[in-house]
Design a protein around this nucleic acid. Structure first.
Lengths: 350, 350
DNA sequence: ATTAGCACTCATTCTTCCTGAGTGCTAAAG
DNA sequence: CTTTAGCACTCAGGAAGAATGAGTGCTAAT
């Protein structure tokens, strides 16, 4: 059954007022904010209906109403006015995005940080590889008798390198051959496959070479696995404490410890939708059951999708957050979503 | 004037009892915990003296005594029993340190994390370079027509690399010469010096070369500067909320926002002492005035000194924290303080 | 120097009472 | 059938007071 127009208007007023004040909303207050001129008694009847339908709840008998998750859901789906950003806001966002992010790792974490300061809620940030990352190419650079540098180009166009030292002497002349070996056998595959090929190799090459090769493969394997694991960054977690809903220290600590200490356990929403809003119990994560999350995603290169989630009480300001976040995400896609990452194409200041 | 032995014993009991319970300690409770058999009235006289001397304070007239910062200081300097770790504790520490840290960046942050879980207080972690980091050597690896990889070896034995792309074509054959140029002019110097040498070079080489060189130098300059900036990591910040002294949300938020969001502003103690305890107002940082910090340092390679700080209320368990932290720090020095970093010398599991 | 004894202080807790915002229901009016 | 005025009712939250009890400081005796 569809709600009447008036019921929707009333629900909207309740949600917005509660978002602003965190106080239950009473019938009189609603009358004042409502354009239609009706008495508070009428509103009370409507409120009773809305409560029966599950859109509102009462903290206790003699208090006003607050929205239920179902109420927020309706608000977000139908009632919320997607408000456009003011020029000064877009300006601020644009300014903050100038030249702050060098290198892929930084894009992800910085994006989260910027959003957090901009929406005034805590955020988390992560990224998914669409395809599995693997090694694109190996290079070995001689250093001294016992050490060399392994340079590993990954398919996501990052380049990682590390100094490796052995007990045995390393012959400069052998390195190119070993690199060739690596490039023919260990490119384009995942970590377990790397290991099994390494095993196969063990009796085809000399022990000395094998040692060298396995050190490099070990390193590369870690890189590939690390790329598969998704690192989650969080920002602004301390802002949680400013909301009255987290006055209860235990509630606060539960969520807080997720945000700052156990981020790896934050289950991320999977959908590819540009923006998604998860309200209270819609979150699968136990610690988020009383909170809401607004998630947006953006492109990084053409093989990754960045994710930014804004975390707050269910009473969070969905309209503003959604507007700002989606503007941000769109801009990030514009800046980093190209075929080839424009890594440090242009620079400014220092 | 020296305190009598009995006064010291009493102070010790007060401090330790308060550390355990967070409740003011009364004369009767002291009698019970004190070996000497005296009456509570005697204790009261002594307490009055200790208060007059500034070692104790009273929250209000009818409460027991709590230690003042001066009291904690005396306790830490003279009274505290440096307790040895039990075998099961050292075992746990040793186990947790097995093979968790690969690469220099990880040593620092992981060390902080491990200490935090082990002492049950929040920690911060950082590292100082004793000497300025600079570039030890450049390598350029051709990739395709317009891009190449810059590999930069730093004096702290880290190796960093990045894919650089230009608009102009990159000649494979030129790269070794350009690398040579870089290695003769841009090694062993700091970022500003790099820039000024770059300027000098501008009319000595062709525009094409200059473009290439400046891209690499720019990248290297950032690396060198980044090494100079000190990155601060924190762990376990949410544990703060479990202490009653941070029940006051505002206090909690102030410190919390330092720990999780503004870590770069945490001023770190400079001393090179292996361990240092800063009690309440001894901290210069405003946000830490009501808290205490136990800092220890350890060697990383032979050019860096890692720093781990344990943060807690002034009522923190100095004896336990100090014991565990120093054991940790000693082990870290043992593991990573060698001449040459044993980066991934041995491995286990995956 | 120590201690028993006693009057005093004051945070904390519990009760009681009051207030006022807000409700639900009924009965009358549109 | 919808709206509204009116009224009795509920209940969280705050204020005020009383009781509790842990702890003190001081005095006078040992």
């Amino acid at each position: 059954m569809e709600l009447t127009d008036r019921k929707k208007q009333i629900l909207k007023v309740v949600v917005e007022s509660y978002i602003n004040t965190a106080e239950p909303v009473g019938s009189k207050a609603i009358v004042e904010k409502l354009s239609a001129k009706v008495s508070s008694a009428t509103i009370r009847n409507e409120l009773a209906d809305l409560e029966e339908l599950g859109y509102l709840e009462k903290p206790h008998t003699s208090a006003g109403r607050i929205p239920s998750p179902k109420g927020y859901r309706l608000y977000v789906n139908e009632l919320m006015e997607k408000h456009a950003l003011s020029p000064s806001e877009t300006e601020k966002i644009n300014a903050s995005m100038q030249g702050k992010m060098a290198g892929l790792d930084q894009v992800i974490s910085k994006a989260g940080q910027m959003v957090s300061t901009f929406v005034d809620y805590p955020t988390f940030a992560a990224a998914n590889h669409k395809e599995k990352t693997s090694v694109k190419r190996f290079e070995l650079i001689p250093v001294d008798d016992v050490s060399f540098i392994a340079v590993v180009m990954l398919t996501d166009s990052r380049v990682k390198s590390q100094l490796l030292s052995l007990q045995l002497p390393v012959e400069k002349e052998e390195l190119p051959q070993i690199a060739h070996l690596l490039n023919t056998h260990f490119v384009g595959i995942d970590a377990p496959e790397m290991n099994s090929r390494l095993m196969n190799l063990s009796d085809q090459v000399s022990g000395h070479w094998f040692l060298l090769v396995s050190r490099v493969v070990e390193y590369a394997g870690e890189l590939v696995q690390e790329a598969g694991r998704q690192e989650i960054y969080t920002s602004g977690a301390s802002q949680l404490l400013k909301f009255p809903e987290y006055r209860d220290i235990d509630k606060a600590q539960e969520l807080m410890s997720f945000m700052v200490d156990n981020r790896e356990d934050l289950p991320l929403p999977q959908s590819d939708a540009p923006m998604q809003i998860l309200i209270g119990p819609e979150n699968v994560n136990e610690a988020l059951k009383d909170s809401s999350v607004v998630v947006a995603s953006y492109d990084i290169g053409d093989n990754m999708r960045g994710l930014i989630g804004v975390v707050g009480p269910t009473r969070m300001d969905y309209a503003t957050v959604a507007a700002r976040l989606s503007y941000f995400a769109e801009n990030l896609t514009r800046m980093f979503g190209k075929k080839q990452l424009p890594l440090k194409e242009e620079k400014e200041n220092e």
